[in-house]
Amino acid sequence: MYFEIKDLQVYYRAIHALKGISLTVNKGEIVALIGGNGAGKSSTLNSISGLVQGQSGIIIYKDEEITGLPTDMIVKKGIIQVPEGRHIFPKLTVQENLEMGAFLNDNKAQMEEDMEHVYQLFPRMKERRTQPGGTLSGGEQQMLAIGRGLMGHPDLMLLDEPSMGLAPILVEQIFDIIFDINQTGTSILLVEQNAQMALAIADRGFVLETGEIVVSGTGQELLNDPKVQAAYLGGESEQEKLQKGDYYF
């Protein structure tokens, strides 16, 4: 098995954030994990990458149990998480941000190759490489965060709401890039509230509600599922959101 979660449970003191979820990612797939605010999406990713400890259940990666390993071990194995909310190192330069992504990589040649790859994906990063990360625009920061993830040379990439708070035009570009990254052989577990876009590029999807997986299927199946449509594909259109000014650039 490439990647599998079995009966994962997470408690924060009295809060039962994940109530036993199971999911799989096959090699080379994009798997979307859809859910509203507080559904437990970030908790899932954080327990995989070891940022949250004390979970129960089993996490298997390349036929090996990795449950409860510290984050640096997980990163070394090639599972790289890009945390939600465009977290970057604001005072480090763009280049230094990217270098931090390769923190555990001692292979200098490979690091430079990865850097070149990132600069190819995001030409703007190359232009701004001597500039502090904090001075980038919101969209650029998200790209920097993804670029930093790529610098870890991921085998499996965990993306936490990469489209959060971005203008529709940028969202589209970000998803294009995620698709490109996947094309080069990286498996992706994509956490999103933007179900429409995520499911469109996903091979398979899982819908998470208050700590439980309620529906699963291929991306197309979920897009056509009436329950999913009602819950995640209706509501405010992107155009309306843009007019309300909910977006950062």
Binding site: S49, L51, T71, D72, V75, K76, I80, Q81, V82, P83, H87, I88, F89, P90, K91, L92, E96, E99, M100, G101, F103, L104, A145, R148, G152
Partner: peptide, 18 residues
């Protein structure tokens, strides 16, 4: 460098493997 990264953002530093 990892100290600086930690100062800037502890979660991300950890996610980078620090």
């Amino acid at each position: 460098r990892s100290w600086e990264a930690m100062r800037e953002d502890e979660t991300v530093a950890q996610a980078c493997g620090v």
